[in-house]
Design a protein around this nucleic acid. Structure first.
Lengths: 208, 208
DNA sequence: CGTGGTGTTGAATGACCTCAAGACAAGTGG
DNA sequence: CCACTTGTCTTGAGGTCATTCAACACCACG
């Protein structure tokens, strides 16, 4: 457990290796995992605007992280407009991702959410070189997956079985192979977002 | 309709009066309303990081808005670190709000979501002076509310009736009075977030 | 060997949805 | 001023998806 929600946020974290989950605890004891973080991700930035951290950061595997004090972060932010602009856009990207997940959880059935998760994780791991033709490892319990997708662990299990039986994926413990990515994509309702290439307008290039 | 998703985002909008909904359309035709915007809100900023707008902005009532070109926005951003910092924190606040809504939709039953919406709208309208002891107007159809909460219009209607019958709220057309805010709050699972007072660390005050 | 966390499967329940019909209000054109 | 339309609200009946509860299998770990 890297940071518990409710604590005063004094750091931002850079994930160097391993998996981390950012979760919110509800009064009733239910948990919603807001995001699975992979190496390279910045963690804990949403709480920069709060007196008490909004999310709990939990290591899901062995991890190595680098801690950045908010103060140090702030001086760079003030002195380098380019850095500020890049951070700003990065947060907007996270916000768009949250909007998409909101739409998925609010409006799509369980199988579409699982499909979206598999595609998302596969894509991100592939960018890190940790996923190939031989599939990828997803070191999550089915309960954690359920807390991420708004489902119960039992139902996650049933959806997995259904996917295996219909030849969409193969699975052995926590190793997954996407056998039919096209069909997964078509049922996942996942948006294909095109990011701007480091928007010139934010960096003073008033060419437009 | 102010802006359709898929268009190239060239403006950011400032809402001066009226209600606007920001929605995402799914491939299957379902709609998720990501946020109801009230006067004073900035609209369309999530799409600043995208080549194609992620959300559709729809006027829900008669509105007046002010359009800000991204380019103009960018020059201010580059020249004023304080402005950049304030914007950055503002986006993080929106992100936290989205995380909370994700938790609510993923993990709470319909009545808790409706309660949370009523409390949220009442609080925001009160800050604008548009809600008092005599209640407030919420100019939304039940279908729009459903698209916001991940429910059907029919079910929203049933929840409203249930709330009226149990004395939680009174309702006459689109005017609501919260009769028992305490009980609404207890069932809503809504987080009480404490914002930092314009975080000093971001503005170079390295006193901490 | 136990033991605890996780995965797996069945049966029953329940929350929410779909479909459908009617009520009501506001607007439109004759 | 009155049909007629249109959109929203309302209510019922029945169905479905996901949950709850429960039992058991399967490791990994002491």
């Amino acid at each position: 457990m890297l940071r518990r929600e409710g604590e005063a946020p004094r750091y931002v974290y850079l994930l160097l290796s391993g998996w981390v989950g950012a979760s919110i605890l509800l009064p009733g004891g239910e948990r919603q995992i807001v995001k699975f973080h992979l190496p390279g991700d910045m963690l804990g930035t949403p709480s920069m605007c709060l007196a008490q951290a909004a999310d709990t950061l939990t290591a899901l595997t062995a991890v190595t992280i680098s801690r950045v004090p908010l103060a140090a972060f702030g001086t760079v932010f003030a002195s380098s407009p380019r850095f500020a602009a890049a951070m700003f856009l990065s947060v907007q990207r996270e916000r768009v991702a949250l909007m998409d997940r909101l739409a998925a959880i609010g409006r799509t059935p369980a199988i579409a959410r699982v499909a979206a998760l598999l595609l998302d994780v596969e894509e991100r791991l592939r960018a890190l070189g940790a996923a190939g033709a031989d599939g990828f490892d997803m070191p999550l319990t089915q309960e954690q997956i359920g807390d991420h997708l708004g489902l119960t662990a039992v139902h996650v299990n049933r959806v997995f079985r259904q996917m295996v039986e219909s030849g969409l994926v193969s699975r052995e413990r926590q190793r997954f192979v996407l056998l039919d990515p096209a069909r997964l994509r078509s049922m996942s309702a996942r948006q294909q977002r095109v990011m701007t290439r480091d928007a010139g307008w934010l960096l003073g290039e008033t060419s437009v």
